[in-house]
Design a protein around this nucleic acid. Structure first.
Lengths: 199, 199
DNA sequence: TCCCTACTGGGTCAACCGTCCAAGACGGTT
DNA sequence: AACCGTCTTGGACGGTTGACCCAGTAGGGA
């Protein structure tokens, strides 16, 4: 094993854990599996982390932070609202296809957080982050296209997440990319109908 | 313990397993937890089932069968397409609020099936069933309202499931019923825009 | 040369899991 | 009353697997 700082090793292990969870689920994310994935000896785990919980905490924190960052700079303004939504959803979709494991982890995290009392609040934070970034995206689009939304933006944000979540979930199951893109495009056109002229 | 037939006890245990999975997730659905939930002694488990797998198989089979039945007779025809969609989604929503555990189990089942090779194909079957019943619902509505869909009905069926799945998932996390109903209503209106006059 | 930091092979120990057995209790039939 | 098929159940067994730790080793800057 290369000689690297403990901090770097931590990052490697967190990344490995992320991959394991995405591929095999939370239950199989054991210290052994994580170390094998990272190509590190088992003992290095407890050299870098006091406990497995410490790694899990760091992983969820990083994931939640990354959420805000990732979906935030995914907004793309085009002349029309419909086009803006279509392109924004398209870029989101690209990130999903590029790294399906990411979405698998997010789904697994939600699921896990919902029934593990130890992770109480994590799922709520996660969805609050989703809704917040969706809201910001919608506001930027409205601003950039010179329109206003005819429905409360909170409601539209929820609908936006319903679309991304729903399409992603179905795709994770059947991997029908054409159908996923078609659905996203159709929804983009529909959501654009909630844009009205600026007062 | 009351003296009942082995078959009745099987049903009790399957029902208990269903509740445990909905509440605590798949990983915690141990034979012990299931028996405690059913109020039955541990030994009764292997009196009724040859193995845990046998119970799990019966549970997934029952669940998939119930899917087709449940969402199938949930179609409600009204004079307009928008109204039909709204009422149909409304009735679906009623079933979710009445028994949130049901949807929890379905989500957990999908998640579990996606990374457990032993349940390979289950998630695909599940979503195929979703899409099939959604398609039938949409065809019945088109027929009942005397319209045709301007998009392939398969695509609309997928979008329909995206909406129900997405709204349900968000609600399972934050339990905001008002927001969920508002989103469903808005989507109903939007999907109705894909109805055109019969040729 | 020294010493601090990072590395790691090989445990330990306990929890918990699915499964099973052998003995008891019930109730309908003879 | 005796019988017997069916159900019930306390308690245990063997085995896997988990998180965690220790004591010794090696690399590299001062």
């Amino acid at each position: 094993m290369a000689r690297v700082s403990a901090e770097d090793r931590r990052r490697q292990l967190v990344a490995a854990a992320f991959r394991v969870i995405g591929r095999d689920g939370f239950a199989r994310a054991t210290t052994r599996a994580i170390c094998i994935e990272a190509g590190a000896p088992l003992a290095s785990f407890h050299y870098c982390f006091a406990s497995k919980q410490e790694l899990l905490d760091e992983l969820t924190t990083q994931t939640l932070d990354a959420l805000t960052a990732a979906r935030a700079d995914g907004t793309h303004i085009r002349p029309t609202v419909a086009e803006s939504l279509r392109v924004t959803l398209g870029f989101y979709w690209q990130t999903v296809e590029d790294d399906p494991g990411r979405e698998s982890v997010l789904m697994a995290l939600t699921q896990h957080a919902l029934n593990d009392p130890g992770l109480s609040g994590v799922a709520e934070q996660q969805y609050a982050a989703y809704h917040r970034t969706a809201r910001e995206t919608l506001e930027e689009i409205a601003e950039g296209c010179g329109v206003t939304w005819t429905l409360p933006v909170e409601q539209l944000a929820r609908m936006f997440i319903v679309v991304t979540d729903g399409v992603t979930l179905a795709w994770l199951v059947d991997r029908d990319s054409d159908a996923a893109v078609a659905a996203l495009d159709a929804f983009a056109g529909q959501l654009a109908a909630f844009a009205g002229p600026r007062p």
